[in-house]
């Protein structure tokens, strides 16, 4: 595989990651979101493996496998099991205004390209053009968290944001040193258990996973 081809394939995968990020913004069904999230993890993993292959960096294979296991199987499975157990499979979220959210998302992507311009100019890696996509994914994850009002969907936004961070590390520097990547993966796994517990706590205290109920702690006048 030539470097040029690898860069192009990586570009396509970056585009697909961005597409799934937008998909998460628009998807109303929880299951649909879970599938999109798993798909995003898969693209991320393949992209990491390709970068590892072309750059000849073997530690990226470890990251790719780690991503595959964690983001494509474990986390979606945990979420799936929770959704199943909490009987919220069929719930559909009423999102206020999808077109507006999408437009804000596009603005965020443009902003990300602008913000990462200095890094792009300095970088010599084949992945330099994808850093902006990575930052966009982070920002779109944010947007998902802001627009959603349910605990599960907020968490999916949070995990998509983490995907973006991981992608950023690969694009900017061919991945962080292995110690750091392993530590980050461990933290995400712990976080997964914590939000799993949280869903039950929220459910038992509020009788629903709707965060609209959580409005007690405000500044009173």
């Amino acid at each position: 595989m030539t470097t040029n081809l690898a860069a192009q394939i990586n570009g396509v995968l970056a585009a697909l990651i961005l597409l799934t990020a937008f998909g998460l913004l628009a998807q109303r069904r929880i299951y649909g979101m879970l599938h999109l999230f798993a798909l995003q993890g898969l693209f991320l993993s393949v992209s990491t493996a390709i970068v590892g292959y072309t750059a000849g960096l073997h530690h990226l294979y470890v990251s790719a496998v780690l991503t595959l296991i964690l983001k494509v199987f474990v986390l979606p499975y945990i979420l799936y099991a929770l959704v199943h157990k909490l009987h919220i499979r069929k719930e559909v979220e009423d999102l206020v205004n999808i077109p507006t959210t999408m437009l804000i998302g596009i603005a965020l992507v443009i902003f990300s390209y602008h913000l990462t311009a200095p890094v792009r100019e300095l970088s010599t890696l084949i992945t330099k053009s994808t850093l902006a996509v990575a930052l966009s994914t982070v920002m779109l994850g944010f947007l998902v968290m802001i627009t959603r009002k349910k605990a599960v969907t907020q968490i999916i936004g949070f995990l998509a944001l983490e995907n973006g961070l991981f992608f950023a590390a690969t694009s900017a520097t061919y991945g962080m040193p292995l110690v750091v990547e392993l530590g980050v993966a461990l933290d995400i796994l712990i976080a997964a258990f914590i939000f799993g517990l949280f869903f039950f706590q929220i459910r038992t205290t509020f009788d629903s996973l709707d965060l609209k109920e959580m409005e007690k702690l405000k500044e009173e006048d």
């Binding site: 509020f206 965060l211 959580m214 007690k216 702690l217």
Partner: peptide, 11 residues
């Protein structure tokens, strides 16, 4: 595990 404690922790 009071409602406000869970809310605070989630935040």
């Amino acid at each position: 595990r009071t409602p406000s404690a869970v809310e605070a922790a989630w935040k």
